[in-house]
Amino acid sequence: MDLTLKVWRQNGPTDQGKMETHSVTGVSPDMSFLEMMDMLNDQIIRAGGDPVAFDHDCREGICGMCSMFINGEAHGPSRGVTTCQLHMRSFKDGDTITIEPWRAAAFPVVKDLAVDRSSFDRVIQAGGYISVNTSGETLDANAIPIPKPQADEAFNAATCIGCGACVATCKNASAMLFVAAKVSQFALLPQGQPERSKRAKRMVEQMDKEGFGNCTNTGACAVECPKGIDLSTIARMNRDYLSATVKED
């Protein structure tokens, strides 16, 4: 199939940036979206141009590196998938596709479609862990039974891949779903209880410091999340933060 691509080009964080139009021909419906981008870049390089920079790595939907805003949606029109798992059979011959980077003050553009998501790392560093040193002398793994439903729910929250689609898709560029997923994972496990309040408080503070927007409960993040993390995580964080606030002396 033949496609027209409108791609965002921006040479560094301070550049103004603009849309650029390219056409690609002979795209196979079996290609992944990124393979189509490879094809575009191959074409650009052979013609002596500057290829489109974009982030990608595992290409199987788990590393969270790929990040394209396709036709007005984070990771494109399909649900439950990342850009690398989006296949060209989701488009029609002759389509015009717009491709933009994640846009948020907390995700400055590195180049073209690649953005800097280190703000997410700093949020995790603020408290997204359980403080336990490596020793090999912790409790036996089966010492604390955890009810299966609770373990499953913690797992569901823990499947977040940190891609940033929630921020990209939120009209306020809020990072609530990302932060809440980590807060929830540990809040649901017995191991996470000792630091529960402190964790929620610190991670929210860091989130605010990074310049993410505020949550207005539109629910767009949960719809676009490739891992299907749901809004109950955000409610849990709201609760935990509230109780952390009340408890504080």
Partner: peptide
């Protein structure tokens, strides 16, 4: 030898391994 410590360590860190209905791994 050290394989068993890995599981203990990971559970202590909050890695959500699959569990049976009895709550054990």
């Amino acid at each position: 030898e050290v394989s068993t410590s890995i599981i203990d360590q990971c559970v202590a860190q909050g890695v959500p391994f699959a569990r049976e209905y009895g709550g054990l791994l």
